[in-house]
Every structure is written in C-alpha cells, then in structure tokens.
Design a protein around this nucleic acid. Structure first.
Lengths: 224, 224
DNA sequence: GAGATCAATATTGTCGACAATATTATTAAT
DNA sequence: ATTAATAATATTGTCGACAATATTGATCTC
C-alpha cells in the first residue's frame, strides 16, 4: 500500500528548515544585524540544533547570514556598498544570460515572457507589494532559464535571496515601494526584438534605475 | 598567560575537515562518481559524522559533491558539458573582473601580475605539474582581486575548485598536462596595455584554448 | 571610581546514539 | 528460472548531551 520509492523522499527536515528560516529573514521577522541564538531559533522552528545548523550553513553561503566561528551567526546587515555590488554583479550576470540565450528565443519562450510581465502588472495593480516583488524576480528568471546554463542559473538563484532581502526591507520601510507598472516595458520590447547590443545597453540603465529605487530608503533608515 | 581573544579562534574542526576533504577530492584520492560513505570518511578523517556532514554541505554547494537526500553523497563526475559550462561561465566572470578592475591598475598591481606569471613559468620549468596548476589559478586570481568586487571574487572562489578538479584529473590521466610555458604571454601583455576591448576579446580565445586542452583527455578516459 | 583579574553563565562546537529511509538478501509464487 | 513480496542489513537523517570557547558579572587593586 505504501507508495514506496515512487516518490523518493525529496523532503528532508533540514531543507524545510532552510526554507522556513529564509522566509523569516525575508519577511523581516528577524531584524538585520541581530544575532541568531541557535537554541532559541531551533526551539521556535521546533527542530534540533544540529538540523538548524545544517540549514544555516547554506544561508551563510548565500550571504543572508554571516557566521563568525565561536561568536555566532548574524542576520545580514543593510549596507549601501553591498547593495551596489549586488546590482553590479546582477547586471553582469543578466548580460551573460541574454548573450547565452539570445539565439534560443522562440515563440513559446517569448509568449512566456509576455505572461510573466502581465502577471507582474497585475500584482502591481492589485497593490500586492510582496506579490510584485516575487513577480518581478520571476520575470527576470526568464533569461536565466532561457540561457540553459546551469551555473549561471545557480549563481542567480544564490543572488536572488539577497535582492529579495533588500526589496523586502525597502517595502517594510515605506510600504508603497514595489516596482513601477511600466518599468519593464522597454525591457520586454527589447527582449522581443533583434538587437542584442541594444538589449545589453538597456540592462545597464534598467539595473541602475532599480538600484536607485532600492537604494533610496537606505539613507533614511540607517545613516552609516 | 593565555593569548585570550587576541587570536579569536578562527579554526573550527569543521573548516579543517572541509579543507582536508576537498584536498582528498582534488588529489583524485576519492574517485569521481563514487559514493561517499559518511561513517567511512568520518573515520578516515577522525571526526564525527555531524562534523563531516557540515563540511560536506559546503562542498555540495560548490558542486564538488552531489547530495541526494536519503541516497547519499557522490563525488562529482567528469562530464564534457559540465566542463564547457565551467569555462563559458568562467569567461564571463573574468571579463567582468577586467571591466571592473581596468581603471584600478597601477604600477604595483601590474608588478604583482608580472610576478605571478614568472612564478608560473618557474613551476612549469621545474616540471612541477601540481604547482603549475596552482600557479596558473593564482595568476588568474589577480584580476578578481583587482576588481575589488567581493561578490565576483566569491563567485570565482566557488568556481575555482571545480576547475582545479578537472585540471587534477587531466594531470592524473596523462601526467604531462599542465599549462604551456608561453600560454599567458599575450594575456599579460594585453593586461598591461590600454585596450580593454582587445583584452576582453583575447579572453575568449584564451579560455577556448584552455578548454580544448583540458577537454582533450575526456575522450580517452570516459566515452559517455 | 576606573580598570584589571578571575569566577559564573551562556553559547557555540563536537560527539555518540537512535529513528527513518534505502539497499541488499531471502523466500515464495508462478 | 524469473519475478514479486518480505525480512535483514546498511546508510542517512535527526536528536540530546557534553566539551570548548566566549560573554557577562563579581571581586580586587590602585
């Protein structure tokens, strides 16, 4: 009667703990810069310390947590320079993605892109701030999936939570803070077009604009 | 009398285990594709399973190990497509590094570059294959350090062990397999010059050549 | 009263044992 | 003899306890 190795048990407690802890960080439930007490967090998530520690390692690798041996693990702090690095690196990655994927575009994938943009516009119209963040990231996922480059995709998947972190903090600060409705119009237009260089050049602008938007709230919040 | 928090205990057993295990993989002591039995490896390294597991997670994140939940952890396999991805991604990263660092070059850093190249030539002359691998990687470290971009550097540090892995396997296959003595002459010349575009274009060729060299042995070894 | 020295507490690092799952060996049925 | 079902074994996942280190608090000296 058991499903046996039909479903080969892909879910470990460690993985679920990883997910839930990331959620807690991205929600802002755990405040940036604060120390994470293993016993306390383990109790809150109802897992053992060993399991929690395994989950935390991956978040430390990504950069959402910072681990100091024997000293403790801290939530990443908001920092202007870090944010700039995230964006400049992201720009480079996304340019790579478009270069790798440019010739792989077809009607199906372009229709997919169109859909992702429409979903983004929808969430913005609905005033669903969190949904808009997720929808924007999902829109940008497109080029990485298109590229068919697993290392590139992995790298983006590692970077994404950090972006999401800043987005969430931004959103938490002033609560009308998501992307603008027409912010991706040019992006989509060029992605559908046939001029790669123009697309790459636009990416710089697009990212710069995104950085400005996200960066703005850092002045008001943390003076350092 | 105790040094106290003068030296804030940066060394954990987990970290040393991580290093040693990576060493074992890169030496080819643990054969590609083979399964890693936790009890066995833990005994060999004289650490507990919990400690070993924490060390393995980081190696899995990098890609040197592949973890299947409840099934086990395996040494990465040699694969032609993977190697191509490593190289194409590396090309993109290194182009980024040169773009970020181009204006930061000065006499000191260029002298540093020169020294790294000389050391590489020296190890090649000495027929020190392993040393040559390390020296070549260290030469390429230069541009990432120059860029001053921590995310970019991190990304390179993650990719590097995988390259080293293929280099080591190559070297193990036919044992005269390191980089050629003059392979970096053009690279150095352009890095010292004032034409970024030319440098970037050369990078493509340089990497393509490196790929060809490293890739060659895959045919003879593993047919798949 | 400020600063240093040492004890007490809290927190992280490491370990060995148990539980859950997968793999292998055995048996039974056709 | 081949395949399916089941028992036995091996391996990974998870836990609670102990050891090592850091942090806090108290005591002492000047």
């Amino acid at each position: 009667m058991k499903s046996q190795n039909q479903t080969p048990s892909t879910d470990t407690l460690k993985d679920r703990t990883h997910e839930r802890l990331q959620e807690l960080i991205l929600t802002g439930d755990l405040v940036p810069g604060s120390k994470l007490l293993e016993t306390q967090v383990a109790a809150r998530l109802d897992v053992s310390r060993a399991t929690l520690r395994e989950a935390m390692i991956r978040l430390s690798e990504i950069g959402l947590l910072v681990n100091l041996p024997f000293r403790g693990t801290y939530i990443r702090k908001l920092d202007r320079v870090d944010l700039q690095e995230i964006y400049s690196f992201r720009t480079g990655l996304e340019k790579m993605a478009f270069q790798f994927g440019w010739d792989k575009r077809d009607l199906i994938s372009l229709a997919d892109l169109q859909m992702r943009n429409e979903r983004l516009c929808q969430t913005i119209s609905d005033n669903d701030a969190f949904g808009a963040i997720m929808a924007e990231l999902h829109l940008h996922d497109w080029c990485y999936e298109l590229s068919g480059h697993s290392l590139l995709l992995q790298s983006w998947e590692r970077l994404k939570p950090n972006l999401q972190f800043y987005f969430a903090m931004h959103q938490k600060a002033h609560d009308r803070a998501g992307p603008l409705r027409e912010s991706h119009d040019e992006y989509i237009r060029l992605a559908k077009g046939d001029n790669l260089d123009e697309m790459l050049r636009h990416l710089e602008d697009h990212m710069q604009q995104g950085l400005q938007n996200t960066q703005s709230f850092l002045d008001t919040t943390s003076p350092g």
